[in-house]
Design a binder for these strands. Sequence first.
RNA 1: GUCCUCAUAGCUCAACGGAUAGAGCACAGGUUUCCUAAACCUGCGAUGAAGGUUCGAUUCCUUCUGGGGACGCCA
Length: 629
Amino acid sequence: MENQNFQKTIKEAIKNALKELGIEAGSVELEHPTLRQAQGKLGHGDYSSNIAMAIVSSGKGKGKREKSGTPLELAEAIKLKIACPPIASLLGDSRRENPLKILDRVEVAPPGFINFFLSKEALLQELYFALDTGEKYGSSKEGEGKRILVDHSHPNIAKRFGIGHLRSTIIGQAIIKLHKFLGWDVIADNFLGDWGTQFGMLIARIQNSKFKIQNCNSKFKNLTIDDFERMYVEFNQEAKDNPALMEEARMWFKKLEEGDSEAWEIWQHIKSISLVEFKRIWDLLGVEFDYIHAESFFEDKMAPVLKDAKEKGIAKEDQGALIVRIPGLETPLLLLKSDRATTYETRDLAAIRFWAREFKPEKIVYEVGVDQEFHFKQVFAVAEMLGYAKKEQLVHVKHGLYRLETGKMRTRAGQTVKLELILDEAIKRAKRLAESKFGYEAMKPRSDKAMTQDSSIASSLNSHSVASDEVAVAVGIGAIKYFDLSHHPSTDIVFDWEKMFALEGNSAPYLQYTHARCRSVLQRAGIFNFQFQISNLEPEEEAILRLFYHFPEVIQESAYNFSPNLLCNFLFELSQRYNTFYAAHRILDVSRSSIANSQSAFRLALTEAVANTLKTGLGLLGIQAPERM
RNA sequence: GUCCUCAUAGCUCAACGGAUAGAGCACAGGUUUCCUAAACCUGCGAUGAAGGUUCGAUUCCUUCUGGGGACGCCA
């Protein structure tokens, strides 16, 4: 059984119709008009095309007008061609899919829309296909043979893993999973920030402080990542009044780059302490990397960059520093500072050079905040000047930042929010809610029937509480992830301690709950088959059927636009429709005597398809879907 | 100062240049002898201002107002 690919079939039908009408077709686009489900009516069709209007308006002044007429006339002409396929296709010309097979009807609406209504058979066919395909429904092979490298997370050593790094980590993870699902060869990398003048600051601070060590004494070993961040913040504040401090920091970073053993030893300790915390968070988030090519990894790979820049004649000495002037940009890119130490930009260039040679990816995607937009503009431009990569290959997926009411959270000003605290709190709240729900269930008077079915309350209590820790983690972490992912990547998010923990409404727990609800019904149904004959669909059933087949399209759009929020929207809407259906209709036959009853079978099929879709979709977002909650 | 970006309901967010601008939260009311009430139903409510392009503008262009960000020795 194959995916029917409604979009492709309809697009080709339109193209063929245009060809027969002797009209040059540009690209044909389809959209899903809004479904007015309240009345259970289709409104404007499952797909609609504005091609007639597009052609007429683009043909203006080119003498095409007489040929195509008004948008409405052209739309009618296209409709006739599609609704009355030529004899060739009726005689079995297999090169051409007869759109009538999937379409119930085609309508034209002013001022020139063509609306396509899928047939019930086609929708049921798609349902069968989804059930057959199971967890793979929505996947494709379109990315086969193509490789994409995604750089994400990259927290900075010696700074706490703040909420600012959540977006990069999570959006990056979703982009990675989406592309894998579409058949891409994905490399997940992490350009960990473990190099630069900031470490000069810390080394200077440690050297000059009470922490000053001889052969790494225990005092130093006890320092935590919080201590490092505090030192960093204090250092920056003091450096405002005392520029000599920055000089000292640069000096220490220079020594670090030159391999000074004292500097290197301190740096090593800072790094290993930080990584312990990062690892814990990555595990909790379920994030995995193929590589962690940290900035320090590129220390010995910068010399070729400098060499290339000099040979190409694009590097210039200026005020003691080595710079590259970029056409169209006022500010040059700094390859070497005036003390000849390297910069973040140089390391980024070395990374592009390395990635391009090592992996030969079609695209390199940076999941980094919008505040680094200018930085990447410079780096991408120079990377192209150096011949490392074409600009089109380099993508900066710039996410908006978490903001306080007062403005940007600045690490240097000590305004970050520690992610681990947020995750812990989310899990606690999820657990508290689960326990209160369970408490309510236990208090509820049970009917005799329920009593005999559940062998004992004690056993169900036990099994429930065993599961609840895992569920609480899935729900708590899921809530935080979904809160983040459901926003369009490029918008800023106002940090709201309460809203992040939402366990109802448009949230991961809502989707997870819907999934668990489906599984529960399916479990009660036991073994059944999906054979059914349906003569008429209830509006709530139809609403689900007319939405769920969007899933493969939504996945492609989410991946193509690097916008996981599109997938969030879809999953939420699907859940809403399922819950509406669930409240309005009974799925299992009340008597449980005739489970093979056609209607039950159909509703169970719907339930299974929705459950699978939710599970797959949540999985692509990096969110777990517990079997029960 | 220059450049980038954003402005949608009381709040937080959606909406390939399309049709009656969708949700969630909050608020008011209703739903459980019946498959999970973390649910469902009803109500309330919005495109910052002024022009322009278009058959059609929340979306594109200009100006204004108001947020946010970036602009060579942090990363």
